[in-house]
Amino acid sequence: MKILVCIKQVPDMESRFKVDSAGTWYDTTELVWRMNEYDEYGVEQAVQLKEQTGGDLTVLCIGPDRVKETMKKALAMGCDRGAHVNDPDYATRDPFEIGAIIAEYASDKGFDVIFTGMQSQDRGSAQVGVLVSELLGIPAVTTIVDFVLEGSTVNVKRELEGGIKAKVSVTLPALFTCQLGLNTPRYPTLPNIMKAKKKELLSIPVQDLLKVAFRLETVSMQLPEKKGGGLVLEGDAGELADKLITILKEKTGVLAK
């Protein structure tokens, strides 16, 4: 079985973000980088499937040279090789372009299963996985929280809105986008970290895979406006009611009865 898992390097969400000088993305200097959280579940599921089937597992990541450090974590978790699509301008790509790059890479590799995260933590479009499946002409099952392989069929559970679980069966080849809680991602052990340094990590210029023009362009972006602080009211119930009515009158101009 041939397996592909797609990951993205994103900033740690605890970072202090600021808009870059062009006003179209966040400033990437002085940020701490990590694997997209949803993708960690995809890597773990891909490794478990590889261990179950004795399959061959490739991890793919698009971005500048720094993403190789994140790819090494996936290799240490159990991926066999890495395919780095070298693209310094990855942040300007819309989901269709990213999906087209992945589909072009996978088109002649004969992957039976492709895993992606449900969405990225920085852009959050949740479109790339389904676009890849459409371009490859294979089924896609999104937001999976359970995965069971039986022969050439995969039985999954999807998490829908409101916490509802839906059972779906699909025949391979197919693509799956992974939701939080699908599994418990493993921590790479020191021996596996050392082994990862010897695994193949091939860099491919994005120009070799990008066959489409972009569809969307970010014109500008801004940080949310800061909101005023909250007001804590103290006193007994009667006093609090009077204070609240006074505040409502002052803030809204509405007469409270």
Rank of each mutant, 00 (worst) to 15 (best):
D12Y: 13
T92W: 05
V212S: 08
L180G: 08
V156C: 13
M1T: 10
F214M: 14
D80P: 00
P224T: 06
L216P: 04
K73T: 15
L190G: 09
Y90V: 13
Q9V: 03
C178Q: 05
V148F: 05
L240V: 14
P139G: 09
I114W: 04
P188N: 10
L255R: 11
P188C: 11
K109E: 15
A103H: 04
L201V: 10
T189R: 15
A174G: 10
V154C: 10
E69W: 09
L136S: 07
I62H: 04
R16G: 13
T177N: 05
K243R: 13
L160M: 15
P64H: 09
H84P: 00
D108P: 01
S120Q: 01
A140K: 06
I102G: 03
G54C: 07
L175V: 08
D39N: 05
E51R: 12
D27I: 00
Q119H: 06
V170W: 08
D56L: 13
I245Y: 06
R81K: 14
V132F: 07
I144K: 03
S21Q: 11
F176L: 07
C79N: 09
A241E: 13
L149Y: 04
C79W: 07
A140E: 07
I62C: 03
V132C: 02
W33I: 02
T24E: 06
D94Q: 03
K226L: 13
S15T: 10
Q207A: 14
W33F: 15
K195G: 03
V85K: 03
L209C: 01
D242H: 13
Q121I: 09
I204P: 07
I102S: 03
Q45H: 02
Y41E: 00
L248P: 00
N155F: 12
K227V: 12
K257A: 13
Q179M: 09
